[in-house]
């Protein structure tokens, strides 16, 4: 399998802090790798190494088979980068930002302008094209930033928390963009703090914490490891809570029925049929509900189960 990028044993220290303590990342061409982790896990450091902005202290990384340290200029022709903060020039207009990038990529003035107009159109920024980016909304700036990283038609694109701080509608826009990119054969490395996002977009997910990979797999594999999903039920009448609790205990293998909020019950379920079973039984019992949903585990829960199980394994192997 041809890897679009591949990193092995990346180590990066900043003074006394170890940002990365041996991280492996890889994605086959035309796929999305989700890198999931909390703030300070080392996600951005890993991206910066793959984008040739930082040199690793140890380990090696290649993009399209090119070494990020020794062949950095060639690597830069393959990649597009969208940082956590929008890296556009706020004093320039949308068009000027994109033309500047195009010119720096050795396009002629005419070609750079054509490319800029084309991208602005695709990102719904045509009307804002001649306005200074300073006056853009957060979502517009993010879109311009994304457009800027596509000027050179990169084969690999790094999106470092592309939806942090965006409202749900704008987030959906970014998701759609990512899917379109992949449909056209681009490989995407996406860092995120949201399992939901990784689940929606990624072919594979690497979970990192404290500069180490603590899990890697497809979203389905990962969800199996962390205990799948949670079924949330809110009966219309709080008096039915006990009955509902009884119902839920029959579908759940684990007995840990929780009440995350007043009048709400949640239970972890492994089986995809649990939802339909619960609906049927609620219906049979004539209990009306105002909320019934399947929820993915939160990042906290993912980390709790991953690090919890890891400690357990370590304890077992030590014993």
């Amino acid at each position: 399998m041809a890897y679009a990028f591949e990193a092995e044993g990346l180590v990066k220290r900043f003074g006394a802090t170890t940002a990365l303590a041996g991280v492996d990342l890889a994605a086959p061409e035309g796929t999305v790798l989700g890198v999931l982790g909390p703030n300070g896990a080392g996600k951005t450091t890993a991206v910066r190494i793959l984008a040739t902005l930082l040199r690793p202290d140890e380990g090696r990384a290649t993009v399209a088979g090119l070494d990020v340290v020794h062949q950095a200029p060639q690597v830069r022709r393959q990649i597009g980068l969208t940082g956590q903060y929008a890296s556009v020039d706020e004093d320039l207009t949308g068009t000027e930002n994109l033309v500047l990038i195009g010119r720096l990529l050795d396009l002629s003035k005419r070609d750079a302008l054509a490319r800029a107009r084309h991208l602005l159109g695709q990102f719904d920024l045509t009307e804002a094209a001649d306005r200074v980016a300073k006056h853009y909304s957060g979502g517009m700036r993010r879109r311009l930033d994304l457009a800027a990283s596509l000027v050179g038609r990169p084969s690999v694109i790094y999106l470092d928390e592309p939806t942090t701080g965006l409202d749900p509608a704008k987030r959906d826009d970014v998701w759609r963009l990512v899917r379109n990119l992949v449909a056209d054969g681009t490989t995407v490395l996406l860092t995120t703090q949201y399992l939901e996002e990784a689940d929606a977009l990624a072919d594979d997910i690497t979970v990192i914490d404290h500069g180490r990979v603590i899990a890697h797999g497809t979203p389905a594999e990962l969800k199996r490891v962390v205990g799948g999903q949670t079924l949330v039920v809110r009966p219309a009448d709080p008096a039915h809570l006990d009955t509902v609790r009884g119902l839920l205990s029959q579908v759940s293998t684990g007995k840990n029925i929780d009440s995350p909020a007043r009048g709400v019950l949640s239970v972890p379920v492994d089986d995809d049929s649990a939802m339909t079973t619960v609906v049927r039984r609620l219906d049979d019992a004539g209990i009306a509900v105002t909320e019934l949903s399947l929820r993915l585990p939160s990042l906290d829960e993912v980390f709790f189960s991953l690090t919890g199980s890891r400690e357990q394994i370590e304890q077992e192997s030590a014993a």
Partner: peptide, 11 residues
Amino acid sequence: KGVFDRFRSLP
């Protein structure tokens, strides 16, 4: 600022 990162990721 981010725009310098952008420049540095260009060839």
